[in-house]
Design a protein around this nucleic acid. Structure first.
Lengths: 127, 127
DNA sequence: TTCCATGCAAATCGTTTGCATAAAC
DNA sequence: GTTTATGCAAACGATTTGCATGGAA
């Protein structure tokens, strides 16, 4: 039930080479600049499609537009709650123990092997 | 520069007794039902005020409206990415080590002592 | 030739804002 | 009296949707 399209490919291609968690708006602007015919609706539709497929990750933001990340290797995110910048970090959680805690305490059955932490970045701390 | 108001108190009171991470809309409906005169604008303004003060926590959602939580005791959140339900869980992270990883790998200086995990709940897994 | 994906624009949702009024101090 | 908070409605940004058309299988 899935069909190839040039626009979807262009959007995914951009995300694969992208390392700074762009917003839908930024993705739209960039693929346009590269000559894509993709409309804004198509960009949103494909971002949803790709994240439902598990190919990319939708990063929900505290304030402002969501951001998107191609799933290269599993990694965690820290988000600056002032400027919304997203940083990647690697960390070896005790997944077995974390899994046990969540299963025991909540109704969640299946979950991601990465976490999100909120914080304030150096730059914003100065201001 | 801060002044008491009945509406703010009503909103906070509701959040204190609330254990299910309501949205702004739900908070508005509930305080209204209890006889508050608070308008929707006032609800939003106060939720922002209270979360900037650190009295409540704003939980940014993957899809749909943000949710709010009175800060009872520090705890982590797992969010079902299908139905958006938020579950609390307690877990003893190795905060020292986590702190070190984040400081070394990112520009984040100061961060929360809880994490957010994404998952799918039992109910949604069935469908 | 059948569907799925697109482009476009209008619609929707969640949230913020401007302004006149009301309440706190 | 001065300042901060409110109510209301309009404005806003981000995202979704309906519909006619175009492109892939």
């Amino acid at each position: 039930m899935e069909k190839y399209s040039r626009q979807r490919q262009e959007i995914l291609d951009f995300l694969i080479e992208s390392y700074d968690h762009p917003t839908a708006e930024e993705i739209y602007a960039e693929v346009k600049k590269r000559g894509s015919t993709a409309s804004k609706g198509t960009v949103y539709r494909n971002l949803n499609f790709l994240s439902e497929k598990g190919i990319i990750e939708k990063i929900s933001m505290l304030n402002g537009a969501d951001r998107y990340d191609y799933k290269k290797t599993p990694h965690n995110h820290v988000i600056c709650s002032k400027c919304n910048k997203v940083f990647d970090f690697e960390y070896n959680f005790n997944l077995k123990r974390l899994r046990k805690s969540i299963l025991e305490q909540t109704e969640i059955e299946d979950f991601s092997d990465y976490v999100i932490v909120q914080g304030i970045c150096k730059k914003c701390l100065k201001n």
